[in-house]
Design a protein around this nucleic acid. Structure first.
Lengths: 334, 334
DNA sequence: CAGTACTATGTAAACGTTTACATGGCGAAA
DNA sequence: TTTCGCCATGTAAACGTTTACATAGTACTG
């Protein structure tokens, strides 16, 4: 038989209102009644019905996390950061992934409605209109790593531009001139920003037009490998490769090694993301470090504030710092 | 203003019951009324209140996924598999992680109660009693990769034992006798099973006692690195290392390279998990492949069946195959 | 034309909480 | 002793659905 608040009330010989007051620590109750209610609840193994609670209070203590994908360690880091903060504030986390196409995102957003008190959205290729059309205006939202015109949503981004810029400048400072970039997935915000960072640094060094060597990639090891092969065969051969993420850098390094080329002696390598393994491959990969889980934590904290403050919450736009980490692969180490 | 079923009913000039019938495709309604209701709903941008719905139907279309941790690509693969199947069956997914200590698991289980229709639990160090004490007997549960005595819960495991056994046998067949294992986190189910597989294969080859070289690890690159150093200094030095996962294998290889040792010429290496990157490091890492996302998919499918069939569901215990993948690092390639 | 059998819709009771308001008891002030 | 006010608790409405049951209309059947 199902145990509801009614059964607890009966057993403790009080009304359901009093039980509710005790269980929620709201209102005044005598110590004696409180104890007998607690006892009854424990004996019956009572657990409040979440749906009823949510309905009555019209909130769910749940937040939704929308992700484009779940491949690799990147997204699990995001989830980790969000979940950590969520748990601290006693919130639940509904995760939904694989949303790349517009209609999928819309469907996911609709489904979330009414189940969550707020949304964290990571969807590098979404536009403001789609969001507005599918999210009630009363719903707090934090955009993670998406670029959306206007400032109607809170957003947190990685400072991709600056990270890429710094890394390429580092390569330039060490004498490299023929620097190739392996780009990320087209029309992906991260990918674009990293590319712009590369271009800017190159341009500032007086390198333009044909000096820019942009090889397409898509953030996977496979494409990195293919890009590596392509770069090897170029004449004149680039002396350095900046891959838009570490996975592609590792793929490219694999191609270089196959061709008998030494890193960094023949070609210097650098990546982005600083995934845990980059430290441990040989040569250790120079990369741009971003604390992804921190990104998630920040997002969740902001969302909580937005939920709490309701209307008087001021929207913000933040960029999370990305730091260059120099290891062996770029030839400038120690 | 909040749009409820009542507003839709009013606008369409019908009762809320009819609206409900239309929206859920249940019961008979005239085409004409159906259309006008659909129109009204669309015009008002009506979205049903999930809490009310859940309360009324006493189910949530949500399942809970309990994870011990979220580091690395492994768990995101699990989530991916579960989420994929969940989406297909129009279920939501509540994820909760970082549950290693018993009381944390208990707390998480309690919090989930009433919010989910079923649970997938991945918690390599949990016991049957804890589970029984915190989960209502009516709640369908699938245990992922945990070993729990008795058969009161559905379970799916990776065939760790067989995978490790096969890999070590492979090394033995190629003439290795001094084979070290870097073990995983103590009292972790996966870790134990892999260790047993190693022991069994060694034993069958007549290697026992001092022939078993068991170096402790904890599944991280760091510990793999440390273990690698330790192994290098052994006299006589092992000729092969079987790491209980790829991350540790990569850490160990990094230590070997530092010491000027060649893989596989000086020491053969093998790992477990076959993470995507293993293919791309050099030498490419021989490993034991397991389709983690498939593990998640299976688990979710089973859970759905259990939810659907209710009491007449027969509990099962399955082991998912683990396949040895031979690459360069163990010296037997090509 | 009465009776029957559908069809299409409405009414109202659940579902299990929270919470505004009502109520009764009791001590202190007058 | 009366009156006021506070304390502790109870009553009942609300939250937004789903759904069993009631009902009114329509089209047959005999």
């Amino acid at each position: 038989m199902k145990i509801t608040i009614k059964e607890v009330a009966e057993r403790a010989g009080v009304s359901i209102a009093t039980v509710s007051r005790v269980l929620n620590n709201t209102g005044i109750v005598q110590q004696k009644t409180r104890e007998s209610i607690m006892l009854a609840a424990k004996e019956l193994q009572y657990v409040p019905n979440a749906s009823a609670r949510n309905l009555s209070r019209s909130k769910t203590d749940t937040i939704g996390l929308l992700l484009p994908d779940l491949h690799g360690a990147f997204y699990s880091e995001v989830i980790r950061g969000v979940d950590k903060t969520a748990q601290q504030s006693h919130h639940h986390l509904i995760v939904s992934s694989s949303h790349n196409k517009k209609n999928e995102i819309e469907a996911a957003l609709r489904l979330m409605r009414g189940r969550v008190d707020g949304l964290i959205i990571m969807s590098p290729q979404i536009d403001a209109n789609t969001l507005h059309a599918n999210i009630p205006r009363s719903m707090p939202v934090v955009l993670l790593n998406c670029f959306v015109e206007g400032s109607s949503f809170d957003s947190i981004n990685i400072d991709n531009f600056r990270g890429a810029y710094d890394m390429v400048r580092h390569l330039l400072q060490h004498g490299h001139r023929r620097i190739a970039i392996i780009t990320g997935t087209p029309s992906n915000y991260d990918a674009d920003q990293r590319l712009y960072g590369y271009r800017r640094a190159m341009m500032e060094a007086g390198l333009t037009g044909d000096d820019l060597i942009e090889v397409p990639g898509d953030f996977t090891e496979e494409e990195g490998y293919a890009a590596g092969k392509k770069i090897i065969s170029m004449q004149p051969r680039p002396t350095a490769i900046f891959a838009s993420n570490d996975s592609m850098a590792i793929g490219a390094m694999s191609a270089l090694r196959e061709a008998g080329l030494k890193v960094p002696a023949d070609i210097a390598m650098a990546g982005f993301d600083d995934i845990p393994i980059s430290k441990f491959i040989r040569p250790a990969l120079s990369s741009v470090h971003v604390s992804i889980s921190e990104l998630g934590e920040h997002a969740m904290q902001r969302l909580l504030m937005a939920i709490e403050k309701k209307n008087n919450y001021v929207k913000q736009h933040t960029a999370l710092q990305a730091t260059v980490v120099i290891r062996e692969s770029c030839g400038a180490h120690g």
